[in-house]
């Protein structure tokens, strides 16, 4: 099986993965980081969002062998102030989409520490939450530094 070298949350991983394997599957099944979720597996819902060099990336439609940048997953953001902001705002119901929401939001506030509601709605519209926690996600991101 082809060898693959990945930098995930500042750790270097030397693994083997088939050439057709998506980054999401490599992270979850080979590296063992299951915080990244797969909900649609075709890039429509945002649950699988990770950052590659800080850019939100849909890992379920990204081939692992094409990634050379530094990957950040939810496991690398566990001490990010957004985590506490999401908890305080009750911005989670079933929680299956939530890691992806946090990863997207973290990229947003890194680029724009004081996002407006419009900024949030524009940036976060690719992350579907079927439970409908959107008003609380908005609140969590607006007050992420409080």
């Amino acid at each position: 099986m082809p060898e693959l070298s990945l930098t995930v949350n500042e750790h270097r991983y030397e693994v083997e993965a088939p050439i057709e394997m998506s980054l999401a599957h490599v992270l979850r099944e080979v590296v063992g980081l299951t915080g990244t979720k797969i909900a649609c597996n075709e890039g429509h819902c945002g649950a699988c969002t990770v950052q590659v060099d800080g850019m939100p990336t849909l890992s379920c439609i990204t081939l692992a062998h094409t990634v050379s940048g530094e990957i950040t997953t939810i496991e690398g953001l566990r001490d990010h102030p957004l985590i506490d902001a999401f908890v305080r705002a009750d911005a989670v119901q079933c929680g299956f989409c939530t890691p992806g929401q946090v990863v997207s939001a973290a990229a947003l506030v890194a680029a724009n520490p004081s996002p407006t509601i419009d900024d949030i709605r524009h940036t976060m519209a690719g992350n579907i939450c079927r439970c409908g926690t959107y008003p609380r996600i908005e609140e969590a991101i607006l007050h992420w530094r409080d």
Partner: peptide, 9 residues
């Protein structure tokens, strides 16, 4: 259980 859900644990 918010923390473990938000942190992906």
């Amino acid at each position: 259980d918010a923390l473990e859900r938000v942190r992906g644990e």
